[in-house]
Design a protein around this nucleic acid. Structure first.
Length: 417
RNA sequence: CGGGGCGUAGUAUACCGGUAGUACGUCUGCUUUGGGAGCAGAUAGACCGAGUUCGAUUCUCGGCGCCCCGACCA
C-alpha cells in the first residue's frame, strides 16, 4: 500500500482525554478512532492488525477442533430469564433495547444461553458429542466506567468458544488442550514471555477458573507469580488454603500488575440443565452436557501488545501481527532516480507477496522517520542517497539495528538480523 | 454507583463580564532536505439550553459529553 493513499494521518500529540498508552499510540498512529467513551473504530492499519490477531486465534481454535459460527448480537430475553440472568440486579451491565411492536431485546454481553439453546436442536445422542463452537462477535457491556483505552470498552469483539462434552473427564481433557492453545496464541502474538497461567475464582462446578495474565503496569489485576513454575494466583483467591492446594510458597511469589487477556472456565452442567441440553448415552440414559467457556478479547489483546512492546518512539509490532512487514521510506525528495529505486523495490516486494507500505509522500526525512517509528512496522527500508540498485539500508524497529542488505535478500525477506 | 476534575479551531493550550491569542496541523509561495526545519501569507474555534446583565465564551442553574480515583467487572 502507498502511504500517500492512506486516509489516516499520524499525530504528534494524543488527545488530552486519552491517558492510556495503548489508545494514545494507536490514535496517534491512525490505527483507531474514538467514537464514544469505551467505543472505538478500527481504521485500515488497526484493522489489519486486528485481522492478524483474529487469524492466529482462529488457527489455534481450528486446530483444537473448533467450528466457527456467528451468533446474533440481539438476544431473546426468555432464555436469560430461564437462567435468571435477565434481571438487572443480577447482571448489571446489560444493554437492553425494545422492539417497535413492544417487547424487550438484549444486546449480547456473552452467549452461553443462546448457544446452549441453539445446540438443543443439534445434540441428541452421545454420537453428536463432543463439539466445540467458537465465534468472533461483538459484545456489549454497559460498563459504569469505561477506561484504559481499548482495554475495557462498552463494545468489543470477543472470541468466545464453548465446549460441549459428554462427561466431566471429557471436559477436563479438552480444558487442558484449550489451555495449551491459549498459550500458543499468546506466544504467537509476541507475549509469551510475559503471560502467566493464573488461578482465579471458579464457580459451582470447579475450584478455579484460569486466566491468562500479561504482566504490565497498565493492568487492572494483581497477581502473584511463581516464576519457577511459571504459574500465578490472582489476588482475589489468594489464601493460605489455596497456596497449599497448589503447592506454592508465599515467600516465593512475586506480586505484579497484569492484564487479563484470556479466561477459560468450566461451566459444568449449569446451562445445559437450565436450557435442556441433554443427550442419550450408550446405555440409553439421558444426561446433561458438560460445558466450558473460553474467551479472548481481540481488541484488548491488541492493546496489550501495544502497551507491553512499545518504546518511547512508538509502537513496536511483532512480525506476526504487524499491519505490514516492511516500511519503505522513500527519501527521494524530488530525485527521480531514487524515487524509481523505491518504487521498483515496492513493486517487486508486492509481487513477492510481502506486505509492504511505501511512504511515497513528499515530506522531510525527520518527519518520515518519526512517523515510521510511531507506526511500528518491523522492518524499515530507507531509500535515499546511499541506496543503489542492489543495496539498501534496513532498520529493525525493535532495537534500531541497521544493516546493509542486498535487494535480492530483501525480496526473499532475509534481512540477516 | 460514591468522590473529584474538565468542556475554547482538526490537535494542544492562553486570556477575558465588552465576541478570543499562541503553537502544531491544513492550504499557498519561497528556501531547505538522513530524525517531526525556516520565512511570509492564508484557513479555522467558545458543547447545548435557561437565568442574571445594557452586554455572557466568561457568572449561576440545568442538560449533555469527556477524563481520573474508588466500587463493579459471567
Amino acid at each position: 500500500m502507498r502511504q500517500s493513499n492512506l486516509f489516516t494521518k499520524t499525530r504528534k500529540e494524543a488527545p488530552k482525554d486519552e491517558v492510556s498508552q495503548n489508545a494514545q499510540l494507536l490514535i496517534r498512529g491512525g490505527y483507531i478512532h474514538k467514537e464514544l467513551a469505551g467505543v472505538y473504530d478500527f481504521l485500515p492499519l488497526g484493522l489489519r492488525v486486528f485481522k492478524k490477531i483474529e487469524n492466529i486465534i482462529r488457527e489455534e481454535m481450528n486446530a483444537l477442533g473448533g467450528q466457527e459460527v456467528l451468533l446474533s448480537a440481539l438476544q431473546n430475553p426468555e432464555l436469560w430469564k430461564t437462567t435468571d440472568r435477565w434481571n438487572d440486579n443480577k447482571i448489571e451491565n446489560w444493554f437492553k433495547t425494545e422492539l417497535k411492536g413492544g417487547g424487550e431485546l438484549g444486546l449480547a454481553f456473552t452467549h452461553e444461553e443462546p448457544i446452549t439453546k441453539m445446540m438443543t436442536n443439534h445434540v441428541t445422542s452421545y454420537r453428536d458429542l463432543p463439539k466445540y463452537l467458537y465465534q468472533f462477535q461483538p459484545k456489549f457491556r454497559n460498563e459504569l466506567r469505561a477506561k484504559s483505552g481499548i482495554m475495557r470498552g462498552r463494545e468489543f469483539v470477543m472470541k468466545d468458544l464453548y465446549s460441549f462434552s459428554r462427561s466431566e473427564e471429557e471436559l477436563d481433557t479438552f480444558y487442558k488442550e484449550a489451555g495449551v492453545a491459549y498459550e500458543n496464541i499468546f506466544r504467537r502474538v509476541g507475549l509469551g514471555d510475559v503471560t502467566y497461567l493464573t488461578f482465579a475464582s471458579g464457580g459451582v462446578f470447579s475450584r478455579f477458573s484460569h486466566e491468562f495474565q500479561v504482566i504490565s503496569t497498565a493492568g487492572e489485576d494483581t497477581i502473584y507469580i511463581d516464576t519457577e513454575k511459571k504459574i500465578a494466583v490472582n489476588e482475589e483467591v489468594l489464601t493460605e488454603e489455596v497456596l497449599e492446594e497448589l503447592s506454592l510458597e508465599r515467600n516465593k511469589l512475586v506480586e505484579a500488575k497484569a492484564i487479563e487477556v484470556g479466561n477459560i472456565f468450566k461451566l459444568g452442567t449449569k446451562y445445559a440443565d437450565a436450557l435442556g441440553l441433554t443427550f442419550k448415552g450408550e446405555d440409553g440414559k439421558e444426561s446433561s452436557v458438560h460445558m466450558g467457556s473460553y474467551g479472548i478479547g481481540v481488541g484488548r489483546l491488541l492493546g496489550t501488545i501495544v502497551e507491553v512492546l512499545c518504546d518511547e518512539k512508538g509502537i513496536v509490532w511483532p512480525e506476526s501481527v504487524a499491519p505490514f512487514q516492511v516500511h519503505i521510506v522513500d527519501l527521494s525528495q524530488g530525485d527521480e532516480k531514487i524515487q524509481a529505486l523505491a518504487l521498483d523495490l515496492y513493486k517487486d516486494l508486492e509481487k513477492a507477496k510481502t506486505e509492504v507500505l511505501l511512504d511515497d509522500r513528499d515530506l522531510r526525512a525527520g518527519e518520515k522517520f518519526a512517523q515510521s517509528d510511531l507506526l511500528g512496522i518491523p522492518y524499515r527500508i530507507v531509500v535515499g542517497k546511499h541506496s543503489t540498485e542492489t543495496d539498501f539500508e534496513v532498520v529493525r524497529r525493535s532495537d534500531g539495528l541497521t544493516r546493509g542488505v542486498s535487494r535480492e535478500a530483501i525480496i526473499k525477506g532475509e534481512y540477516g538480523f
